[in-house]
């Protein structure tokens, strides 16, 4: 346990509602290095509440880096400067006494701000609804071992499937592109034998929806991979491109 406290200046984006203008508000905090970034915001909010001021609206849930709810842009990095963790796993020992920290919401046309640091990421769900599934009714499944899946294939599918849907890839991309998210989702199912029957319908439907929702195109800058809390590889984007080209060349139009 560390008794030393860090004195920090926070510049936090405050925006009362979706249609109102926002601005940065400065806060001074003193925080234990063992505290997490979100616990620091909890403390700050408690302080604001006890002064009868509205707390800063931000989202989080599991606080162990798996639910994908949290997501702040901290000093320009989605989920902060430490690679491969979500905002909730960022601890204050990674900052220095006297630092100024800028906190912004994810910014993208497809992710409109709802309040302060909360954005609406339901566009990602719309993409999933368009085709991110295998059509199999409950009860109709064969035995789990009926179709053997090579260990490395299962493991590669798992790597793609470990995406937590936080939207940091969109937030990091200079084009607000959702290609890493969609790439991971398409890859997960395209790799598995169970995903084959709908392989080409799926990729076309998901890309079509992605384009409709106002995400940008991929410029292969790979910022998404660098900022992804789960380290999802851009190989998934390459696979998405491949699947898409193939589907357009040989499969029926969706």
């Amino acid at each position: 346990m560390n008794q030393r406290k860090l004195n920090l200046t926070l510049k936090i984006w405050r925006q009362p509602g979706p249609n109102s203008a926002g601005s940065f508000v400065e806060y001074k905090v003193s925080v234990s290095p063992d505290s997490s970034f979100l616990e620091m915001l909890d403390d700050l909010n408690n302080e604001l509440e006890s002064k009868n001021l509205e707390p800063i609206a931000f989202e989080s849930d599991c606080r162990e880096g798996i639910c994908g709810t949290c997501g702040l842009v901290i000093n320009g990095h989605p989920h902060g400067p430490i690679p491969k963790i979500a905002t909730c796993q960022l601890h204050m020992r990674n900052f220095k006494d006297g630092d100024t920290i800028w906190v912004e919401p994810f910014r993208a046309k497809a992710f409109p701000v709802i309040k302060d640091l909360i954005v609406d990421r339901s566009a990602l769900d719309r993409i999933m609804e368009a085709g991110g599934f295998i059509s199999v009714n409950t009860g109709s499944a064969p035995d789990g071992n009926a179709i053997p899946i090579p260990k490395d294939v299962a493991s590669e599918a798992m790597d793609s499937a470990s995406c937590i849907g936080c939207g940091a890839c969109v937030a990091a991309c200079k084009n607000s592109s959702a290609m890493l998210f969609v790439g991971a989702k398409v890859s997960h199912l395209a790799l598995l034998p169970q995903g084959q029957p709908e392989r080409y319908i799926r990729v076309q439907a998901m890309v079509k929806k992605m384009d409709e929702l106002g995400f940008g195109a991929c410029s292969n800058t790979y910022a998404c991979e660098a900022e992804c809390p789960k380290g999802i590889s851009i190989i998934n984007i390459a696979r998405l491109n491949r699947e898409y080209i193939k589907s357009k060349l040989i499969a029926d139009e969706v």
Binding site: G76, R107, A108, T221, A226
Partner: peptide
């Protein structure tokens, strides 16, 4: 157009 409001601080030089 996909990002109408820019970031105040952007770490783009660090991740690309």
């Amino acid at each position: 157009k996909a990002r109408p409001i820019k970031y105040k601080i952007n770490a783009i030089s660090k991740n690309t």
